[in-house]
Every structure is written in structure tokens, then in C-alpha cells.
Design a protein around this nucleic acid. Sequence first.
DNA 1: CATTTTTACCACGTCTGTCGTACTACGTCT
DNA 2: AGACGTAGTACGACAGACGTGGTAAAAATG
Lengths: 116, 116
Amino acid sequence: MAISSDVIRGYNDTIILYVLLNSDSYGYEISKEIRRLTDDKYVIKETTLYSAFTRMERNGYIESFEAEPEAEGTGKRRTYYRITDAGRAYYREKCEEWLLTKDVMAHFILDDPMKQ
Amino acid sequence: MAISSDVIRGYNDTIILYVLLNSDSYGYEISKEIRRLTDDKYVIKETTLYSAFTRMERNGYIESFEAEPEAEGTGKRRTYYRITDAGRAYYREKCEEWLLTKDVMAHFILDDPMKQ
DNA sequence: CATTTTTACCACGTCTGTCGTACTACGTCT
DNA sequence: AGACGTAGTACGACAGACGTGGTAAAAATG
């Protein structure tokens, strides 16, 4: 079963910010990192990713800058993103909210639903 | 902190179906049961609840029937809902999807985000 | 017995995040 | 030359959640 983005709705920003916590990055790389971290269980859609960038930059959670690829011959122009202090704060908030959400959901999920 | 509905988006149906697993019920009672189960941590909005009923009945996950209150003097007319086999199947699917989602999210959440 | 609160439900329109489709364009590999 | 991987963007549709505002009966309160 593939997990739909709609499930994670509202948490794509959090996921992206998590990747940016470790180092500045750009769309394509972030996308690959998410796949790698989740063993391809979650593959963020391109449009979802880039619209998240727009939204988060508008909200002041990230900043963008243009940069050439570090090594020679490894692709074309890229827009890098850097997490801001506001972004870090927002990430922390969303983490707490997630933990709460998990608790709430636990009341409604049967771990072995086949028993029902 | 209140948990945003956007978080649970797509899982309100699952939550409602869970309540209906145990017994037929109606809007107002389901709403109270969700509050009770979560210790008021999650309070479903009325419009969210009733639009979920419409959607789920359309999808064949629940069936409605009119009924008078069982005990005398305990409110007015009610629309009860009953979960169908398709609803039970859908509930099971969403449970599995949730467990997967939890696993995926675990990669992106720091349990003690203040450390960052 | 008049007022307020609780119970119970619904219509309508708006907002927001996700996603489908489609497109540009450069680099690398065969 | 063509396919594939890299890197990004525009535009519009869709669906779920929610705000606003309403009806109406029953129960509780002063």
C-alpha cells in the first residue's frame, strides 16, 4: 500500500524542514532524501514539494538562494533552501503537534484491525 | 496546544467509523464520544462531522435511519448511523494506512525537538 | 413561567494543501 | 540521435475542513 500525500497533509512542510535541519538543500535532492529515509514508502510529488517551498518562503520558514552545483558536471542550476529560525521554531511546534496527534489517533486505531 | 484538524484530515471518517463499530449512534452523541475518548483533546467541528456523514453515506460506508430517543425525555428526533460491511473494510484499510503513516512520520520527528 | 442552555441538525460558501497535466531545459549515457 | 536523469515551473481542479448563520425542540435555571 502506498501512502497518499493527503494523509500527511499539513506535514509536508515539517518533513521538508526536517531535511533542511541537517543542511541546506534543493528540491530534487530533498525529494530523493525523503525517498531514501523512508525506503521509498513516501515519495513526495514534485508539485507538492515546490508549492511547499513557495508557501514556506512566504511564511519566513525558509530562504532561497541560487547556486551552481558544487562538483563539476553534476546537473544544472539549482535553487537552494536554508531553514530560518522561524522555520526551526515552526518545526518544533509541528513535532509537538504530531506527538499529540499520534496520542489522539491511538484511541481510534485498532492495531490488529482484522480482529474486528 | 490544540490539534489542528488539518492534521487529522482524511481521518475524521476513520474516527467516526471507530465509534460506530461499537454501536449505532447519531451526530451529537458521536461528537461527545470523541471528546470523551480523547479527554477533550480533539473536538470535532459540527460541520466536519455532518459533512463526513453525507460523504460516507454516499460512499456506502454508513447507513442512516431516523429514530426517537430511547429513554423518555432525552432530547429530540435524531438521525442514527450504522456502519456497513464496506465501512468496516474501509476502516481496516485506514488503520493499516495510519500505521504506515506513523512509521513514515517517525523518520522526520524528533521526540525532543527542543534539543535542536 | 420566562429565559437560558443543551440537544440536534443542516445549508452555503470559502479556504488551503495536494495533485494531475503539461511544459522547459540542460547534462549524461548508449 | 534518442533516452534518461536532473532541475524547476505554471495552471487549474479537487476535496476535506471550517466559519457563519440558521432552525427547533427539550431540559434546566432563576
